[in-house]
Amino acid sequence: MDRSLSQPLFVYGTLMDGDMRRAVLGRETALFRAEAPGFRTVFFPGRVYPALIATEGASAVGFLLDGLTSGDFDALDRYEEDEYERRPIEVLEGTHRLLAQTYWPLASIPADSLPWMLEDWQRNHKVRALVEAFEVHSR
């Protein structure tokens, strides 16, 4: 994977869905399976989408998006709005540890938050989220 142009982005929630990535970015990107040791994916309080929280012994599963441009990051920042900020995280791609960017929740997330599952979101919320993302992207 060539990371010379930009730092990859670790996605662990709705952006793991290919349709959602294309709706937000207007294209597909290079994609690699990865995980974030010491974290788990849970529901963002009062929302249908996820957040990461530190959890000893856990590992949040996701993807690395590579080859992102500054325009891609602008689109991703708009998608994530003001509930997250982009910050570094150490992830594993296979056996390789590397630094990536990810979207961290700005709200305090309770340690007992319920696990968030992509499949549940796809079944229950994806269609509405895609409509909203296409509306934002087309502006």
Rank of each mutant, 00 (worst) to 15 (best):
T14D: 00
T55H: 02
R128E: 14
A60I: 03
G26H: 10
L31K: 03
T102R: 03
F73T: 02
A107L: 14
L130G: 04
V136A: 14
G67V: 07
Y79M: 07
L99R: 15
E80Y: 08
L5W: 05
A75S: 14
E90R: 14
Y49W: 15
R78V: 12
R47Q: 14
T102L: 04
E93H: 14
G38C: 06
A51T: 02
T14Y: 03
L52Y: 03
L25I: 11
L68T: 08
Y84W: 05
I89K: 07
V136G: 02
P8T: 04
D120T: 13
M16I: 07
A36V: 06
E35N: 14
R87H: 11
D120L: 10
L76C: 04
E85G: 09
A60W: 02
L130I: 10
L114H: 04
A30T: 09
A23V: 05
M1A: 14
D72L: 05
R3G: 11
Y79Q: 06
R33D: 12
M20E: 01
G13C: 00
R139C: 11
D74G: 00
E85N: 09
D77P: 08
E132Y: 13
R86Y: 04
S6A: 15
A133F: 08
E81T: 11
S70M: 09
T41I: 04
E90A: 14
A54I: 01
W104I: 05
R47L: 06
F32S: 12
T69S: 15
V24C: 06
F39Y: 15
D72Q: 08
G46Q: 11
G46I: 09
P105A: 15
R87C: 05
Y103V: 07
E93F: 04
G71C: 08
D120A: 13
S4H: 13
G46P: 06
F134D: 04
G57P: 11
M117P: 00
S113Y: 05
L99H: 12
E85K: 10
G18H: 06
D82P: 00
R86V: 09
P88F: 11
G46N: 12
T14C: 01
V127R: 15
P110T: 05
S59N: 00
E80V: 10
H96K: 15
P8V: 05
S138V: 11
E28S: 15
E90C: 13
R3W: 05
A111M: 08
T29Y: 00
L52I: 03
E93T: 12
D112N: 15
W121I: 02
H137L: 07
A36L: 05
Y103C: 07
L68R: 06
V61C: 04
W121F: 15
E35I: 00
R123A: 13
A75W: 02
P110G: 05
A54F: 00
F73P: 02
H137D: 07
K126I: 07
